[in-house]
Design a protein around this nucleic acid. Structure first.
Lengths: 119, 119, 119, 119
DNA sequence: GTGGTCTAGACCACT
DNA sequence: GTGGTCTAGACCACA
């Protein structure tokens, strides 16, 4: 819950990532309001400006919209867009690199997958 | 060849990683001399101090040794140690996270294996 | 019909502008009553205070008058005054800026006007 | 040069717009370094953080790139992209609205062209 | 020298 | 109540 101060990731980015995860795993539903900048700042013991920075980036990424005087809300369709982007990123970017690493280190992709996904 | 200036990775780390890769894939052989700080700085258009910082970290990691007046040399056994460390890192750290992602995004083994063959 | 919550324009101003447009294009005739604050608030799903603020500014601008217990009414002559003000604003303010932009982007004002106004 | 404090536009946006204009009119050439955050802050008598915010948005808009430890630089091709975007915006967005206003207010082409010559 | 991040506290407009 | 903006001053990593 509370940010990891020793992490190299800036606090505002940790918060942003947490919101993104919450949208993806469904714990933050589309149309729902995010906790207010002030509340989240008190909860996480951080400066409101830091929280605000995370929220502003979410707006710029098109995942969240600001409703004047009312708060920040998860945009309709945000979850699907996130999942789709993540699937594309994984299959086109991460997985090929992982396969390359597996080969380079002399492991066997088939075997790793079977043993890891079976249970 | 030339560093990515807008990358979040610091330049000295990009250089360091390049040397490590070269040792691992055999293009830089144990006992061989690294290009001099000056040469590498000119080649990559970077500050000599930055190149020096990369080399110093390689020394601290025990992969490279400085021979006064002669230059920097890859230590005997560096490649094996790197490979061993990489194998451990991969199996204990990266692979479990990859498996988690695969599950979360709902991919299946056959699909992934097929996609990896095409690359 | 419903306000744009993510717009930078405040809601009360969006409403105010809508009333002004309605007066100018004749869909709200002089002497006619505006919809009540309560009705408009329900219709647009906005806070009654917000609707009230829009109406108050219309009163301050001398376009609308409050008749106690009866509601808000468009003032006689409002339309002419609005049109006159708009013409002045356009010719002294907007049009010179548009001409400047046209020049800067390498378009031709004469040509644009002819092709746009002919049909 | 100095920001307009009474303007509704936030300072950081005024600065950002000034840089964009400078790129478009050629007074800031591609590949050239922007004045440093600190310098611009001293020059304009604003907080460095405010200047930094303007620069960060320019990075996010893909007009400027950060080179670690060296400063911010105008990206190659920034000017063309800006001009192209501006032309599109004007023709598809602003001009149709202007034509609509011209019709609504009953101006004619000759009148407008004459008025534009005097400026 | 460069930019990045954070704090603490302030004032503002809007709903 | 909401978020937006700014200040003044601090510490950090990087080149």
């Amino acid at each position: 819950m509370t940010p990891d101060w020793s992490d190299n990731q800036p606090i505002y980015r940790q918060l942003k990532d947490k919101v993104v995860s919450a949208i993806m795993d469904g714990s933050l539903i589309e149309g729902e309001a995010l906790p207010s900048v002030r509340n989240v700042a008190v909860d996480l013991q951080i400066n409101p400006l830091t929280a605000s920075k995370a929220y502003q980036e979410l707006v710029m990424d098109g995942l969240v919209e600001k409703r004047r005087g009312r708060g920040m809300f998860v945009i309709e369709g945000a979850r699907d867009r996130l999942l789709e982007a993540e699937r594309t990123r994984f299959i086109e970017d991460e997985w090929p690199r992982v396969v390359e690493t597996i080969r380079r280190l002399g492991f066997d992709a088939d075997e790793l997958l079977k043993s890891s996904l079976s249970h």
